[in-house]
Simulated assay, not measured.
Amino acid sequence: MIKSIISDMDGVIYRGKQMIPGADTFVQKLLSANVPFLFLTNNASQTPLDLKLKVESLGIHGLTEDNFITSSMATAMFLRSQKEGAKVYVIGGGGLINELYNVGFSMSESNPDYVVVAKSTTFNFEQLKKAVHFIDHGAKFIGTNPDMVDPVEGGYEPAAGTILAAISAATGKKPYIVGKPNALMMMIACRKLGFHPEECLMVGDRMDTDIVGGLEAGMKTALVLSGVTKLDMLNEFPYRPDYVFNDVGEIEFAQL
Rank of each mutant, 00 (worst) to 15 (best):
A131W: 00
Y239L: 15
A159E: 11
G249K: 11
M186F: 15
A189V: 01
T121S: 14
P146N: 04
I6C: 06
I167R: 00
N124T: 01
M1L: 13
G227E: 10
G172R: 12
L49S: 09
P48V: 08
S226H: 01
Q82D: 10
Y176R: 04
D247W: 01
V103E: 15
G59Y: 03
L223F: 07
P112Q: 02
K87Y: 02
N182G: 05
N34C: 12
E250A: 12
N102F: 02
G204C: 03
T25V: 08
T121G: 09
A169K: 14
V178P: 01
G213H: 01
N98S: 07
F141I: 01
F195D: 12
N98K: 08
I188D: 08
V116Q: 00
V203Y: 03
G62Q: 07
A183G: 11
M207P: 01
S7W: 10
G194N: 04
T171Y: 06
T171R: 02
E250G: 08
G104N: 07
D66I: 06
I97S: 03
Y176P: 06
Y14W: 09
S226D: 07
V224Y: 03
A169S: 12
D210C: 01
I6Q: 05
T121V: 06
T64S: 13
V248T: 02
V103W: 03
Y101F: 09
V27D: 11
T75W: 01
I188P: 03
K83A: 15
A76D: 04
F195Y: 13
G138N: 10
V132Y: 00
Q82R: 10
D66P: 07
D247Y: 06
L49C: 03
E252Q: 10
A118G: 07
D50M: 15
R15F: 11
G249N: 09
K87N: 10
L164G: 00
D136E: 12
G214T: 01
T25S: 13
G154Y: 06
G92S: 04
I135G: 00
V244S: 08
E56Y: 02
P238H: 15
I13Y: 03
F68C: 14
F245R: 10
N145E: 04
E199T: 12
Q46C: 15
A86S: 05
P197E: 05
K192Y: 11
L79K: 02
D136P: 05
H133P: 04
V27T: 08
G194H: 06
G104P: 09
M1V: 04
E198G: 11
M148K: 15
Y239D: 09
G93R: 01
L31C: 13
F237I: 09
F105W: 05
H133Q: 15
I6G: 02
Q18N: 14
N124W: 06
R206D: 10
D8H: 10
N111V: 07
L100S: 07
N34D: 12
P175M: 02
M202C: 10
I20V: 13
R191T: 08
I142N: 01
S45A: 13
V244T: 14
K3T: 04
P36W: 00
V152N: 12
F237Y: 11
M187R: 14
A44T: 07
I60L: 08
L49E: 14
